[in-house]
Simulated scan of single mutants.
Amino acid sequence: MLLFDTGSIAPADRADAYREATVTETGSCAIDHEPGPDGHISKRIETWNFAPFSMYLNSGNSGFRYWQTARHLRQDSWNTVSIISQAVGQGSFIWNDHQQTMTTRDLIITNKSAGYWEINWTGPGATLCLLADAGQVGLPDRIVHAAVPHVLRSPVTPLLLHHMHGLRQGGDALASGPGADELGQATLALVRALVASVGAPEGMRREVADETRLTRILAYIRAHLADPDLTPARIAAVHNISLRSLYRLCESGGVSLEQWIIRRRLEGARRDLSAPEHTHRTIDAIARSWGFTNASHFTRRFRAAFGASPRTFRAAGARPILEA
């Protein structure tokens, strides 16, 4: 959902209008803009809600600098946790004495009580941010602070990155769909697991790891759906549990593992069959890209799930004929 766009605002008023919109959403902060190629700034903010998180895509045609300090926390007393990745271009993150590059493969986490922090980029760029009240995340500030400089070495980081970019791609449809609350809770579990994995003492790490294990497993599966060798045995081995424990964990969470994997692969194939950018690809190529190595098996499962064969679905203009 589009929250803010400078396109309808007079150039002289854009910086102030952008700051007002940002402060309303994220709390007290400071912002600088580099002028764009035409001498003016051009910025957009898109937002989606996956409670307890709000997700923002902040994009622009020129450099950008956003920072918060302890003074900003005192001004509005709203302590938030932010998880940020660069969606376009390359930027940097500074937290007290820590500094790191930000690309689409990097992730940073911080909160307003962490002291001075800033993000910035030069030239055209965009950042993707998850934001929640620190109380909703439910981890002590000292644990979040301890995690800040070590996020990139957490095994949870690539799972959360993949999850965030999946939420962005789904955008309005996911945020307005019946599964939005479940996606929010999955996001919360991944954020808690990430922070605990690099910032918490051993006892808390074990507690949070146990609490979030199924969510992390499902996130791992989503990130590897295209692998034809994604088997229960491989999933169990990666997560250092036995195959029996994996099935027991899934059962307790109401998940039928093989059917869950097939359904998500079918949904991915259906999205590609309906996407204009994939019209040049054959149905077999799309099926293989989602882990289906047998064309007749894919056609049979697709028809059972959606009420039409992949060929009929595509020929009908990619309109769902029957929703399973």
Rank of each mutant, 00 (worst) to 15 (best):
residue 271 R to D: 12
residue 182 E to I: 13
residue 283 I to H: 03
residue 116 Y to C: 04
residue 3 L to I: 06
residue 169 Q to I: 11
residue 147 A to F: 06
residue 92 S to Y: 08
residue 112 K to A: 11
residue 111 N to W: 12
residue 103 T to P: 00
residue 166 G to T: 11
residue 31 I to D: 03
residue 128 L to F: 14
residue 187 T to Q: 12
residue 239 H to K: 00
residue 279 T to R: 14
residue 236 A to M: 06
residue 69 T to R: 04
residue 95 W to S: 10
residue 112 K to E: 12
residue 246 L to T: 08
residue 91 G to D: 12
residue 315 A to E: 06
residue 162 H to E: 10
residue 234 R to A: 15
residue 119 I to A: 05
residue 296 S to G: 02
residue 184 G to K: 05
residue 77 S to H: 11
residue 27 G to T: 02
residue 156 V to F: 00
residue 316 A to I: 00
residue 195 V to C: 04
residue 173 A to I: 07
residue 251 E to I: 09
residue 5 D to Q: 13
residue 60 G to F: 04
residue 203 G to W: 01
residue 221 I to H: 01
residue 228 P to H: 03
residue 137 V to K: 06
residue 53 F to Y: 13
residue 73 L to I: 00
residue 40 H to M: 07
residue 162 H to L: 07
residue 262 I to R: 14
residue 18 Y to H: 09
residue 226 A to F: 06
residue 164 M to N: 04
residue 192 R to C: 07
residue 233 A to Y: 12
residue 305 A to V: 01
residue 261 I to N: 09
residue 161 L to H: 02
residue 119 I to E: 10
residue 30 A to Q: 08
residue 251 E to R: 08
residue 51 A to H: 08
residue 43 K to N: 14
residue 276 P to S: 11
residue 198 V to S: 02
residue 73 L to C: 00
residue 10 A to S: 01
